[in-house]
Measured scan of single mutants.
Amino acid sequence: SDIKVHVGDITVELHNVSEEFARLVEEALRLGLNEEQAKEWAHKALH
């Protein structure tokens, strides 16, 4: 599904992702990663 993740003043739109993936992206953003890094990190975490 499509999910918007908000962290501080950052909003990341995720398309066709699981809630778990979105949660991992949100966690990575909170750790200070940028959007691209957060998506990559979440992807690796799920595989």
Rank of each mutant, 00 (worst) to 15 (best):
S1I: 15
S1L: 15
S1G: 13
S1V: 14
D2A: 14
D2M: 15
D2H: 14
D2I: 15
D2K: 10
I3F: 14
I3A: 05
I3E: 06
I3R: 09
K4I: 15
K4A: 12
K4N: 12
K4D: 10
K4F: 06
K4E: 10
V5A: 04
V5G: 05
V5Y: 02
H6C: 08
H6A: 14
H6T: 15
H6D: 08
V7E: 06
V7N: 05
V7H: 11
V7G: 08
V7D: 06
V7Y: 14
G8C: 09
G8A: 06
G8P: 06
G8E: 08
G8L: 03
G8D: 09
D9E: 12
D9V: 10
D9G: 15
T11Q: 07
T11K: 09
V12W: 01
E13Q: 12
E13S: 13
E13R: 07
L14C: 05
H15L: 09
H15Y: 03
N16L: 05
N16R: 04
V17A: 10
E19Q: 15
E19G: 10
E20H: 12
E20I: 13
E20M: 15
F21P: 00
F21N: 00
A22K: 08
A22D: 03
A22Y: 08
R23I: 08
R23Q: 09
R23A: 10
R23V: 07
R23F: 08
L24H: 06
L24S: 02
V25N: 00
V25S: 00
E26P: 00
E26Y: 15
E27P: 00
E27Q: 15
E27D: 10
E27M: 15
A28P: 00
A28M: 04
L29G: 01
L29V: 04
R30M: 12
R30C: 08
R30A: 09
L31F: 13
L31G: 07
L31W: 12
L31R: 12
G32C: 02
G32H: 02
L33D: 00
L33S: 02
L33P: 00
L33V: 02
L33G: 01
N34T: 14
N34P: 09
N34I: 02
N34D: 12
N34K: 07
N34R: 05
E35N: 04
E35Y: 10
E35G: 11
E35T: 12
E35W: 10
E35Q: 09
Q37G: 05
Q37V: 03
Q37W: 03
A38L: 01
A38H: 00
A38D: 00
K39G: 02
K39S: 03
K39V: 12
K39I: 14
E40V: 10
E40K: 12
E40C: 07
W41S: 03
W41Q: 03
W41G: 01
W41I: 03
A42E: 00
A42R: 00
A42N: 00
A42C: 01
A42I: 03
H43L: 13
H43K: 13
H43G: 07
H43A: 11
H43Q: 10
H43R: 13
K44I: 06
K44P: 00
A45W: 14
A45D: 02
A45G: 06
L46G: 03
L46D: 03
L46A: 07
H47M: 13
H47N: 12
H47E: 11
H47P: 06
H47Y: 08
